[in-house]
Simulated assay, not measured.
Amino acid sequence: MKMSKRNIDSLRFKEVFTIWKQLGVNNGYIATNHFFFKYAVNRDLKFIILEFIQCLKEENKQLEKLLKENGVLAPPLSIDQGNLQIAKMRGKVAINDSEISAILSMNIASSLISVSQAMDMSFESSLTTKYSVFHMKYAILGAKLIELSNKKGWLLSPSST
C-alpha cells in the first residue's frame, strides 16, 4: 500500500471539523444577536451587538473560504440576515439590556475560548494567524462590553458574606 504525500496547503481532519463546528456556532450567535438587537434599548449596547455580528460574519467568511478550498461545504445559516439599522429599531420590554449584556458577555467569551482552542490545535501558520486576529477582536469587544456594563450598572457586585 503506497501512501501519498500530504499536500502542505490542505487542512487536517481536526482542523476541518473545528472550522465547520466554529461556523455552526457563529451562525447561532448571529441569529441570537439579531434577536438581541431588536430588543436592546441602549444605543451603545446595540453598537456592540452590531460589532459582534460583524466580527462573526468576517470570521465566517474567512473560514468558509478555507473549507471551500478543501472541498467541504459550510453549514447553512438559517436566518434572514436583513439590515439592522439603529434608527429603525425600537427596544421592547421582552428582555432588558442587563440580561442581553450578560448573555452577550458569555457568547463573546465563548467565541474567544473557541478561537483560542482552534489556534492551539492548528498546524498551518496561516490558520494560526487568522485565529489570533479573531482572538484579539473578541478580546477587545469583550472589554468594550465590560466597560459599558460597568458604566450602566449592569455588572452585579459580589455579595458581601
Score class of each variant (00 low, 15 high):
residue 3 M to S: 12
residue 5 K to M: 12
residue 6 R to S: 10
residue 8 I to H: 11
residue 9 D to L: 12
residue 9 D to T: 13
residue 14 K to L: 08
residue 14 K to V: 04
residue 20 W to C: 03
residue 21 K to L: 02
residue 22 Q to C: 00
residue 23 L to F: 04
residue 24 G to K: 02
residue 27 N to S: 10
residue 28 G to N: 05
residue 28 G to R: 00
residue 29 Y to C: 03
residue 29 Y to P: 02
residue 32 T to F: 06
residue 34 H to D: 09
residue 34 H to M: 11
residue 38 K to Y: 13
residue 39 Y to C: 08
residue 40 A to K: 04
residue 40 A to D: 08
residue 42 N to S: 08
residue 43 R to Q: 09
residue 46 K to Q: 15
residue 47 F to Q: 13
residue 48 I to Q: 05
residue 49 I to F: 05
residue 50 L to D: 09
residue 52 F to V: 03
residue 56 L to M: 05
residue 58 E to Y: 02
residue 61 K to S: 04
residue 61 K to R: 08
residue 61 K to P: 01
residue 64 E to R: 09
residue 66 L to K: 04
residue 66 L to C: 04
residue 67 L to N: 08
residue 68 K to A: 14
residue 70 N to P: 15
residue 72 V to A: 11
residue 72 V to F: 10
residue 74 A to Q: 14
residue 75 P to L: 02
residue 76 P to S: 09
residue 79 I to N: 06
residue 79 I to Q: 06
residue 84 L to Y: 07
residue 87 A to E: 08
residue 87 A to N: 07
residue 89 M to F: 14
residue 90 R to G: 12
residue 91 G to Q: 07
residue 91 G to D: 05
residue 91 G to H: 04
residue 92 K to Y: 08
residue 94 A to V: 15
residue 98 S to E: 15
residue 100 I to Q: 01
residue 100 I to G: 03
residue 102 A to R: 15
residue 106 M to H: 10
residue 106 M to L: 14
residue 107 N to A: 08
residue 110 S to I: 01
residue 110 S to L: 02
residue 112 L to W: 00
residue 117 Q to L: 01
residue 117 Q to Y: 02
residue 118 A to F: 00
residue 122 S to E: 00
residue 125 S to Q: 05
residue 126 S to N: 11
residue 127 L to A: 03
residue 130 K to N: 01
residue 131 Y to D: 00
residue 132 S to I: 01
residue 137 K to Y: 03
residue 137 K to W: 02
residue 137 K to Q: 09
residue 138 Y to W: 00
residue 138 Y to N: 01
residue 143 A to H: 14
residue 144 K to W: 06
residue 145 L to D: 07
residue 146 I to C: 11
residue 147 E to V: 11
residue 148 L to T: 10
residue 148 L to A: 09
residue 149 S to L: 14
residue 150 N to C: 12
residue 151 K to L: 14
residue 151 K to R: 12
residue 151 K to G: 12
residue 151 K to C: 14
residue 151 K to W: 11
residue 155 L to I: 15
residue 156 L to N: 13
residue 157 S to A: 11
residue 160 S to D: 12
residue 161 T to F: 14
